[in-house]
Simulated scan of single mutants.
Amino acid sequence: MDLIEWNDFIKVELRVGKIIQAEVFEKARKPAYILHVDFGHDLGIKKSSAQITKHYQPDALIGKLVVAVVNFPKKQIGPIQSECLVTGFHDENGDVALCVPDLDVPLGTKLL
Rank of each mutant, 00 (worst) to 15 (best):
D104S: 14
K46E: 06
A60I: 02
H36D: 13
L14Q: 14
K27Q: 15
I45D: 05
A50N: 04
F25N: 01
L3R: 12
I62S: 07
I20S: 09
Q21E: 15
Q51S: 10
E13Q: 15
E13P: 06
T109P: 02
A97Q: 13
G88T: 03
F9A: 12
K64V: 11
K27W: 03
P106W: 10
V66E: 02
P58C: 07
L35N: 05
V69A: 10
K27R: 13
L112I: 08
L35C: 10
D8M: 07
G44V: 02
N71P: 11
V37T: 11
I19Y: 05
K27F: 06
L14V: 15
V86C: 03
D102I: 07
P58A: 07
I4T: 14
T87H: 08
I34D: 00
V16W: 04
P31Y: 04
H55M: 02
F9N: 00
Q57A: 07
A28N: 03
V100H: 05
V37F: 04
L98S: 06
K27I: 01
K54D: 10
V37S: 01
R15Y: 08
L112R: 12
L112G: 10
I80D: 00
V100T: 15
V100Y: 06
L112P: 15
V105M: 12
L65W: 08
E92C: 05
Y33M: 01
L112T: 13
L107V: 08
N71K: 03
A22P: 06
I10T: 11
E83N: 00
P106I: 08
G78K: 01
L107E: 07
M1H: 13
I77W: 01
